[in-house]
Design a protein around this nucleic acid. Sequence first.
RNA 1: AGGCGCGUAGCUCAGUGGAAGAGCAUCACCUUGACACGGUGAGGGUCGGCGGUUCAAUCCCGCCCGCGCCUACCA
Length: 871
Amino acid sequence: MSDESAPLAKNYDPSALETRWYQEWTDRGYFHGDAAAPKAPFSIAIPPPNVTGFLHMGHALGSTIQDILTRWRRMSAYNAMWLPGTDHAGIATQMVVERNLKREEGKTRHDLGREAFVKKIWEWRKQSGDRILDQLKGLGCSLDWERNTFTLDDGYSAAVVECFVRLHEEGLIYRDTRLINWCVSCNTALSDLEVEHNEGAQGELYEFAYPYADGSGEIVVATTRPETMLGDTAIAVHPDDDRYKSRVGQKVKHPLVDREFAVIADDMVDREFGTGAVKITPAHDPNDFECGKRHKLEVISMLNENGTVSKVGGGFAGMDRFEARKAVKARLLELGLERGGKPITHSVGHCQRCNTIVEPLVSTQWFVKMQPLAEPAIKAVEDGKIKFVPDTWTKTYYHWMTNIRDWCISRQLWWGHRIPAWHCKACEKITVARTAPDACKHCGAAASDLKQDEDVLDTWFSSWLWPFATLGWPAETRELNTFYPTTVMETGYDILFFWVARMIMAGLHFMGKVPFRYVYLHSLVTDEKGQKMSKVKGNVIDPMVVIEQHGADALRFALAWLTTNAAQGKNIKFSMSNVEDARRFANKIWNACRFVLMNLEGFDANRYSDIMADGLDGVELDLPERWLLSRVQRKADEVHLALDDFRFQDSAHLVYHFIWDEICDWGIELAKARLADETLDATSRLKIQGVLVYALESAMRLLHPFMPFITEEIWQKLPKSSSAPQSIMITMYPIPDSRFADEASETSMMLLQSVIAAVRSVRTERQISRAQKSKLVLTVQDDYKKTILDGYKHFVMAHANCDDVQVRRSGEAPKGPTTVVMAGDVEVTVLLGAPADAGVERARIEKELGKAKKDVDFYTKRLGNEKFVQN
RNA sequence: AGGCGCGUAGCUCAGUGGAAGAGCAUCACCUUGACACGGUGAGGGUCGGCGGUUCAAUCCCGCCCGCGCCUACCA
């Protein structure tokens, strides 16, 4: 614990204080959300990172945003709870462990066998699984660690089984044999979403001829995948295509394998494309598969699951699919059947995990029927029960949801939730159950005849339960009752379909309520050039390195500063200079605090709060103090509104400018001279000190969600009345206090600021040295301004470096060389020691005059405009 | 092929139907007892192009030109 009475260190050093405070907060249990607390709940479930992962800039951004929201709401009297956890991440994790196994022991998972391999993964999880959580701690995330959940925890796994069994009972989960996406490298089925379509792949549209079986010529087809001709079972042409009309029904002879099949007519064929004749391979193309169903074609799989040609490929059997492509082409050339080819740009599906080209294969898999789940999920958004921020995503969501297709959920992996289905050796039927069944439900065969399905479930099939399975579902817990629905889901837009949409469906289906009220989707964080950060490119900025160098506070503030509710698809370009800027800001705060602390001689916080207890009424305060108090209220209001709208950049800017431009540049500067004056009476001094402390303390609370560590450190050092809480974390977030709002003072200050700025500008332009004081004549348009400027001319003198200020309603131009500028409608005449350069002066005045004339023209025109005046 | 979005100061980006803003960068001056990770001041933009609606358009509409993203089974 830091010694509160110790002075603030001369230099700001984030590293030591950040670790210290995180420990302190955890020890005091500040992060825990009590399900029984009688306060309005505010909850967020973290998008669980991959258990083997490490924190990247995207996590840092998302977690910063979530922590800002959580800390802000916690300070605003909400029962705030931010739930941490990790995802077992099926394929990704299995791949990492397989790679290690290969590297360290030269073995494959098959060498170990399922049980030993899964054990191995658990060991790996144990050793690396907490790294990413520790990194989140380093970032300052106020996560409720008591609720930390892993998607393979017993309770969570039970929820996954429950979900599967219920959907199966409802007929929403089924098993079917159909064309699915298969990764020949990962050796598993994939869902449609896990296939990435790399746009613009260069391929060849290859043409070759099928001879008619009766020797009456040939039909030329065009394909990008010649090797699949080994599985062809038809040729399709358009029914109205005169070129081929007469050939429909006629047989062709396969040139490489012993097979004949017919020319068929199907209007899926585009007459303009290729030759207008399409080879049909129902087992290896989704289009052809559908076509095959329509025409009851034979489905011949010519590829094995590992991507080699199957035994139906005759002499090509055993070849890799790309090798086979070359071989088939060579053979066709030999046979004189090649008819040319041309380059084509098309999109090819790649495995999201390993980037291997995905193979459409016929396979028996488990599926979820999505449409019945999607309909209520669409309605919930239409009804405004869930709002997307930014709302441009709403349309994207509707589009995907209304065109949703069934979800292939079985994966041929070992790491994950095993499918709760048992195959009966006796009757070959399947029994789906919550626990291993005693007997086959269909034929009564003994348990010994039942074998559990080898496959595991898609990782996302467990994550779609996240907002409620983490709170104890299917049990009816107090946690669910209090924290479900969660308030906000904050995540990257890249998993809108993978995860967010599916959570909405699952939440509505199993809980009958939406899983969250708001979906905040953040942008992709790229490097400063807009390039995606990747190890290969070597442009990765590691958040942990940033934290080490500049502190978590600087990183968080930089991220918040960059986070606009940007339009869809616009990235956040991140560079170290953003962090350095934030670090400079932290340093500025540090030093402002040092100034205030150094000037607190004789200050008594309790006495100050007694004086101010009833607001401004009857309290004699100088203008800068009234002004600063009022500004605090205004900023508190603005920041609150910005956060309420998820405008993180706005809120960060507001606090930044409040602290830097208002507290430091004016509040402290105006206080300086007076505090330095030893003749100042004790009460006046107390008020100046008190207001500075108040403003700084309020600013620290405003800033705390963004920069939790430095604000705590400084807050602890500031004098407080005896009733103050133990930590800034448990103070109230500033809300505007009307007792301290004072519009008149803000107006008056603005007048002073503009006059001071005008004089400074003249002095710089005239190159008047610092040592030389100026004399001013201020000519004003009304008595109010005269009173203000007369009353506070000492501030003008001090801050505009003048030794004489005369304020008047009108009068002759002062004698001697002068420069006149306008500050609003105040004529500011600066008396110069020496005559100005006539040419320079003329140019300046002409420029100003030109501007003024333009203004006059503009307003005259506008006021002369009848329709404008009417409006 | 459909859909979404972007084009504003040198750079990165906010923003609004009533003559444009921030941070950084640039230039000048200032080592003033909080801070040179600082202070003061200055320069810099026909808000992608062309039309339309409006009293008024950077903002609304249409087209065009440049980008980016998402969805999709074009063999």
